[in-house]
Amino acid sequence: MLYAERDDFKDLIPIPQDEGPSPLAPINYSQKCNPHRDAMDMFRAVVDINEKSERALGLTEDIIRMNAGHYTVWHYRTTILVELGLDLQSELKLMDELSTEFLKSYQVWHHRRLCVGLLATTTSPFADKNCPAAVTISSTPQTSSPPPPLPSSIDLARYELQFIANLFHATEDPKNYHTWVYRQWILTYFDKLFQDQDRHHELEFIESLINDDIYNNSVWSHRFFCLFKLGWLHTSLEAEIEYVLIKIGIAPSNMSSWNYLRGILKVNRKGLNQQRVLQFSETLVKAKSASDDMNPPLPALEWLADAALEDKNPIATKHYLTLKDLDPIRRHYWTWKSHLALSA
């Protein structure tokens, strides 16, 4: 039923959109009883009298389900929740549903983060209406990041990690950018509360995703984040190099794992001339070149070329010229590298 016809809203007069005589790029709301237009007309009426109520909350939910990107409506929803001191657990439940449905909406993830920040910083969020929330919706962005989480919120953090893991499976989209950004926020925000078992779980989760799809660059990036940004590497750099080489052995042209290998060396201030990796690359290049119809894996040859360039070894030029022949779409890039090698 349209809001304009609902009994529980009959005290309000909907305010139609006023676009003036010649709107720029108007959107076709052609249907006479367009539910989006109807709800927006009522939303304007609610905002006009600054009404913060349960029915207004329901209205924002309806609009969000039609238009998950409407940041104004999201913000109004947040202020209703805070001002009325409503139950954020049930809001988070609703977000479980909405984050699944609107996976690619910036706003849905942002709102989830607000809810989790509020829940993590107070023992009984909004139970007492006279006690202001630990986090208020500030008017200046500088003060908007939540204070550190309470120790009791560890279960909430674990719930969030499990929710996202399930979401990757449910949506079959383990490369979704928003989801990864959110997961990394959880891991950063609750970092001090996590125990060894949590870190162990996370590494197992990463391993399972790499096994599902070794070409998933998001997981490689996430592995880097956990081991080298959060500092979870408990083995040695050498052991991590061996780990990557095994994965490269499975998919020798997979640029995700090669880039990861370059990354972990660089973050440890090491160059490309690592004996172990050079040998490994040479073996790969020779094995493939020996068979007639197979090209050597380009990233292995590139490693040898870049390592030689780093060492000012003239063999680099030859490697780059081979790469130019094997990878013609990047011929300008390889030519340029070969010139660098010549003048090195």
Binding site: A25, I27, S30, M66, N67, A68, G69, H70, Y71, T72
Partner: peptide
């Protein structure tokens, strides 16, 4: 066609119309 009237598929971008324009 689009400048005169954006199809209703753009409904969810109503608050970002200047970028569409």
């Amino acid at each position: 066609r689009h400048l005169n009237l954006l199809p209703s598929a753009y409904e969810s971008n109503d608050s970002a119309r200047l970028t569409l324009a």
